[in-house]
Design a protein around this nucleic acid. Sequence first.
DNA 1: CGTGGGACCTGCTGGC
DNA 2: TGCCAGCAGGTCCCAC
Length: 272
Amino acid sequence: MPELPEVETTRRGIEPYVRGRRIGKIVIRDARLRWPVAESLPRQAENRRIIAVQRRAKYLLLRLEDNGTLILHLGMSGSLRLVAAVEPVLAHAHLDIVLSDGQALRYTDPRRFGSLHWSAGDPAQHHLLARLGPEPLSSAFDTAYLHGRSRGRRASIKAFLMDSRMVVGVGNIYANEALHRAAIRPMSPAGRISRKRYARLVQAVKAVLAEAIDVGGTTLRDFTGSDGRPGYFRQRLEVYGRDGALCHRCAGCIRVERRGQRATYYCPGCQF
DNA sequence: CGTGGGACCTGCTGGC
DNA sequence: TGCCAGCAGGTCCCAC
């Protein structure tokens, strides 16, 4: 569900309220997430102060004093809300990270594709994070890098862009949107696209993600920020979910193609 | 090694 | 109105 902008929106929403607070208790109502939440996790994290809330790819990192980190992924349908710990527990509210001030970070995830891990040392070395590519909004993600890595690749540019070893945080919505902005057809082989076009693409990825973060992400059905408010990028989507509608750039007709379980939206009129 | 497809899980929608 | 197939924002893992 959440892509990078939605995770970043969540991070920004909770950070001012939890930084400096101490974790009182971790309540696990249902440990059956993508991987079972370790039984030992609560006692490792309880009674420690949260010193920072960071994001790496689509993972939220709660950095605790004395080198511990809670690594949280929202999966497809997860959300993290700041609630009063006494607030009634609704369906799928699998976890509470209860803070010392009576508030709690409540993790809700109907599909249970999300996860929660503990890292005792450097979280960047954790097996889930160790092989991730650069952050798309960092200077390491540039034309030379992406063009270089694409040489010899026969996979589609869209699959290439969504491969977290190449660059992190670009999911199905923003891959479609960035490719439309860059006027590149999603099924083109990554290895046969020119450096000049990669320059446009890198620019498009950065711009789309930055704009989405600015407006609180994209709400399709149920995403809300940590305060319960939706994101407003949906109104700015140019291709995602717009099959049959007119392209705003060339007045062509937006098409959708499904391969596997992923829908690809593009404009045949202006994407090549 | 690169690549594509299946798997995980629940809820909603649209067509019959 | 009711039922069921198909689809959903992620990504790991496994055959080829």
